[in-house]
Computed example of a mutant assay.
Amino acid sequence: MELSYLTSKIRSAATDGKAARKMLGEDLARSFHSIVADIRDAMYMGEVPGTQEIELADGKIGLNYLLGHLAVLEVEPIGSAPNDVHNWRQVHRVRLLRIVQDGKVLV
């Protein structure tokens, strides 16, 4: 899938509850919006409650948040400082990349 298409879909899912429920179903949409709310409320990514899996690929850090039903929200910390396994907790902003379930991109 084209990146701009995925960016548009994830943005729509994050801002529109009805669209999220249509794309993800009731339970995944609820989990997704809960994590998005936690990210918005946190000053730094290290303050987001719950556990996340940290990945390092192509020199970039990725954070994966479990949504349930084997679905994962993939997030990329962004900022002016280089992001690595040592400083991602101090990052203020993230890019919501996609939601994946069993290896298939949902949004």
Score class of each variant (00 low, 15 high):
V48T: 07
E76G: 03
G17D: 15
I78Y: 02
R93W: 09
N64L: 09
H86A: 10
G50C: 06
L56V: 15
I35C: 02
Y5E: 11
A29G: 09
E53R: 08
L66D: 08
N64H: 14
E53W: 02
R21Q: 14
V105E: 08
E2G: 13
G17K: 14
G17R: 13
A71R: 06
E55N: 12
Y65A: 00
P82G: 08
L73N: 00
S80K: 12
G25N: 04
A29D: 06
A13Y: 03
I99K: 00
L6W: 05
T7N: 11
L63N: 03
A81I: 09
T7Y: 07
A20F: 05
V75T: 04
S4Y: 06
R21N: 12
H69P: 08
L97D: 04
I54M: 15
Q52D: 06
L73K: 00
V72M: 02
A42W: 08
V94M: 02
L106W: 01
S8E: 15
I61L: 07
G25F: 03
T7S: 12
A20C: 11
R98W: 00
D38W: 09
D38V: 03
I54R: 15
A20E: 04
L56S: 12
A71E: 07
S12N: 12
V107A: 04
R98L: 01
R95E: 05
I99H: 00
T15D: 10
E2C: 10
D84F: 05
E2Q: 11
S80I: 14
H33T: 00
E47K: 11
H92E: 12
G46Q: 09
Q90I: 14
F32H: 01
P49Y: 03
L70T: 07
G59H: 03
K9L: 11
M43I: 14
V75F: 04
K104E: 11
E55M: 12
G50T: 03
P77G: 05
D58E: 14
V94I: 10
K18A: 13
V36A: 01
M1A: 10
K9P: 00
T51P: 15
V100K: 01
A29C: 05
P77Y: 03
D27S: 11
L63V: 09
M43G: 15
R95M: 06
K18N: 10
V107Q: 01
D102H: 11
N64K: 10
V107I: 11
D58V: 07
L28A: 02
I54C: 12
K60Y: 15
Y65T: 00
G79S: 05
F32Y: 05
V91K: 13
V94Q: 02
E26I: 14
G17Q: 13
R98M: 02
L3M: 12
G25W: 04
V91Y: 10
I78K: 08
I78Q: 07
L106D: 00
N87T: 13
E55W: 07
A20S: 12
R21L: 10
V107E: 01
I61P: 01
H69I: 04
